[in-house]
Design a binder for these strands. Structure first.
Lengths: 337, 337
DNA sequence: CTGAAAGCGCTTACAG
DNA sequence: CTGAAAGCGCTTACAG
């Protein structure tokens, strides 16, 4: 018996039925008598049977695994999204794969996509940057796919399995908050753009326009604090600058550090607002005013949409997209006199 | 032709050989004539053939995928380790799976392990906490497994595929650094313990003993900044306290925040040293003195060990375990007069 | 060095 | 409602 994996036939023998019947029970086929189903289930339990994913996949069984394609797994946004996807996948009985796409070349992106496609496996693309968007485009038709995107592209047919946080309004709110505090205008240090139109940048700009405030050129940074620090050093040279909106909280930390170094205390001399509300933001010095974004919930919602597209029966319990909201703490205040 | 996945037989036909020969080429079997191999490889290229992982697994092919078992994927340590494992797995052509173990019950842990075991798939356990260690113990013999552990347990047969950062010395160094600065003693806020003996706690204690300094009871916190903040509030009540070593940089941030709130500036009144050197630590206010730990390199090393245990031919290029080191910045200084 | 056979554990039609 | 057949794409012995 050792070295022998218990299979569908063992279960069938134990339950006194044929192995197809076991398969039907496994797949929730309607046409199995309740009594038969029960005895099969008991036999599975007794033998501690677990179906082989490989065999199911090979035989053309239903999709029961997802692979997440992303350029990064460690930064707060993608890591939180991954966390949410994993939770949802696990509770749906799906296996979860992860593959990082290196942005080296367009070839690399297509390659990553191709290698991630397996029968019985769906894809979730975290498309918050250009490589991610390229990967999403490279998914061949017929492959089940869902995606987390920054912004649904206006031209594109907004796919039903895309999710995003609509943070245009939140960005407007943040800018308005700063303007109401008395700032003449608000500078913007952006995260990398995944499309030409970023909702949050659009929100920043429109709030400024609406108020008749000057619109300084936005700085486009990378994802992490180092970029924020570099942008901050540049911005610190501008004596007129009094308020900065940052594309994420890591960037905000770097910006704040550059301001301290330049002798410009926060919020007395410069106000800083972030994006994300990472678990550390409330412990920054000073605690960061920022726009909360629930990437984990978004990840869960994305998986739910994927599941719904796979199996229309599960369409009901679609979680709503999480709403961003401004969390006011202490890094923003009135401009200096 | 549509809807038909190109398989080993298509390649065989294209190359004018039998499908077993194609299989041999795939598995680097020695007994294939170079010319034959080449023409098979060309045929694969022409048809853009990709072997089916499911079929290989079912047929008892070699291990070509790993599943990472971990209680967390978002915090700096595990997320960085995962990043390193992913890189190494990808470049070895392995598929990567991830499964989070919920520490709910012992049953849940065993269940997580059982569900993660698939033919042709190995396991890597991130065993930095009790559930992780329990999972590692629950892996049945015969399943290829590697692990990242906090400390190799002295009793246990130190498995050849375990990796860890030996931070006892680094912890001693940090304590000595603080003592040399003039502090009477150093308090310790620990991350959760995965075993009864933590090297870093042992290092902290031994440095104190060696110097004849009093040994305050260590505080055991959780992993994140919230715990650091709570521990910090408690510690802030002790007027004699002047120096704190923290189990990680997130905790250090929380501790620092609690000290600010208590009116105890850093480093003038209290010195704080962290563990990890996360990308944010250098931008803390003040920049954090901390012990750098390269979890990403550790993840890569762990995968390399797994690979070596799977295929003795690859045993050579074993990367060395990354060495921790004290990075001196500005959060520690002499005690107040 | 290369080909014919059997089988991994499942599923989907097809019969009854 | 349930059973016998064929096949998913591969691999490992076994022959030649």
């Amino acid at each position: 018996m050792i070295g022998h994996r218990v299979n569908i036939r063992d279960v069938a023998r134990e339950a006194g039925v044929s192995h197809q019947t076991v398969s039907r029970v496994l797949n929730n086929h309607p046409s199995v008598r309740p009594a038969t189903r029960r005895s099969v289930l008991e036999a599975m339990e007794r033998l501690s049977y677990r179906p082989s994913r490989a065999a199911r996949a090979l035989a053309g069984g239903p999709v029961d695994s997802v692979t997440v394609l992303t350029s990064n797994t460690r930064l707060y946004g993608p890591a939180s999204a991954l966390e949410g996807i994993e939770e949802a996948a696990r509770s749906a009985g799906f296996a979860l794969g992860v593959r990082v796409i290196e942005p080296d070349s367009p070839d690399a992106v297509e390659n990553a996509v191709r290698r991630s496609i397996e029968p019985a496996s769906a894809l979730i693309v975290i498309a918050y940057d250009r490589p991610g968007v390229a990967a999403l485009r490279a998914v061949p038709p017929g492959v089940p796919v869902a995606a987390l995107v920054e912004t649904p592209a206006p031209g594109d047919p907004t796919d039903e399995t895309w999710v995003w946080i609509d943070d245009r309004h939140a960005a407007e709110q943040a800018v308005k908050y700063l303007l109401d505090l008395g700032h003449r205008t608000v500078h913007y240090v952006s995260i990398p753009l995944s499309t030409d139109i970023s909702q949050r940048m659009a929100g920043w700009r429109s709030a400024l326009e609406h108020a008749g405030a000057p619109i300084p050129p936005p700085l486009v940074a990378g994802w992490d604090a180092d970029w924020g620090y570099e942008a901050g050093k540049q911005l610190a040279r501008d004596p007129d600058l009094t308020a900065i909106l940052c594309g994420n909280d890591d960037i905000a930390l770097g910006v704040m550090h550059a301001m301290y170094e330049a002798g410009r205390p926060i919020p007395e001399n410069v106000s800083v607002v972030g994006f994300d509300d990472t678990p550390l933001a409330r412990y920054y010095h000073p605690p960061l005013t920022t726009i909360q974004q629930d990437f984990r919930a978004l990840g869960r919602a994305c998986f739910a949409k994927l599941l719904a597209s796979l199996d229309p029966a599960s369409r009901r319990d679609q979680p709503a997209s999480p709403q961003p909201k401004l969390v006011i703490r202490e890094s923003a205040g009135p401009p200096p006199k």
